[in-house]
Structure formats: structure tokens, C-alpha cells
Amino acid sequence: MAYSTEDDNFVENNIDDWLDLIMQEYGERLTKLAFNYLKDWGLAQDVVQDVFITCYNQYHKVSKIVYFKPWIFRITINRSKDLLKSTFIKRYIFNNNLLKQFSHKELSPEMKLMLNNEKEKLSQTVLSLPIKYREVIILFYYEEMSIAEIAELLALNENTVKTRLNRGRKLVKNSLERSELYGRTVE
């Protein structure tokens, strides 16, 4: 990785260049990754900003990390999860995700129309999964990581990753079939 070279010529203003580079390369990806956890663009941006500030402050260590991508992914994921926990009560009370789940069978006409789009339907279904299945599905299918990479990133056993992936697939399938069935009975 270009930024992991042990180049001693790195001088102070190179940090800024380096920051620009990693923001260029990872900014968008990390924001989306964080969004997949938080389902809120504002919070996702906050997390990513925090991650980059950490990178900057730890430049001397970080710039020498060989596997930079897993590292920056990991801290993004960890920050996102921390935030999820800390805002749990807030979300529990104010966010209607929970309500959405309960009222899943009674989607509004607008929602139905929106979900008629297959892609949208799939995306929403994945986002509505519980976090532990959602993250492996996202990392495997969206980030296109291998089981081994995911296991390392999430500090999990590979078999655990596989199990969660299978369970996640089933959940997606059931959920999609249910909405399909529902759509038919209504129409």
C-alpha cells in the first residue's frame, strides 16, 4: 500500500497530503459503511470525520500500517457500533425502525410503491436486518470481502462468520418472500 511505505522523508506537511489521499480513497466508502450501521447520513459523516481525525493524530503509527484498509474499516465499524450503543435509548424512543418492524405487514401505499423497485426492496431488507447479520452480509456482498477477511476484521471465528452469513441470507429471503406474498394478496 502506497501510504505504508517506510519513507523517512515524510515531513510535517506531507501529513496533509496523506490525509487528502486517504480521504479521497476511503471517504465515500467509509461513510457508506458507517451508514449501513447507523442508517443516518449525519451520524455516518460524524463517524468518518472522527476516524480521519484519529488517523491524522496517529499518523506516525498509522502510516506504517501495512494492512491499512482492514485497520481503517475496523475503526470505522467500531466507532459506528459504539455510537449505536450510546444512542440506543435515543433511537429506541425516537427512531421508528422498531415501529417499522412491527408494522412491517402494514406498509403504507407509498412504501409499497417504493418497494416495488426490486433493488430498493433488497437494500431496505438488508438494512432492516439485525446488526450482526447485516454487517456480515454487507461486508461479504457489498464490500466483497472474503470470509477470512471478515473474520479478522470483526475478530470472529470464520465459522461464526459463515453461520451468520447463512442466517442472514435466510432472513433476507424470508423477508423478501413475505413482502412478495403480501404484495400479491393485496393486488
Binding site: 451508514f35 433493488k119 433488497l122 437494500s123 456482498y141
Partner: peptide, 13 residues
């Protein structure tokens, strides 16, 4: 699911 990336980039992301 193999098209998840595209699906999400076209919609929610």
C-alpha cells in the same frame, strides 16, 4: 445478493 453493491449504490446509498 451478488448484485447487492449495485442495488444499494443505486438506491439507499
Amino acid at each position: 445478493l451478488n448484485n447487492l453493491r449495485k442495488a444499494m449504490d443505486d438506491t439507499v446509498l
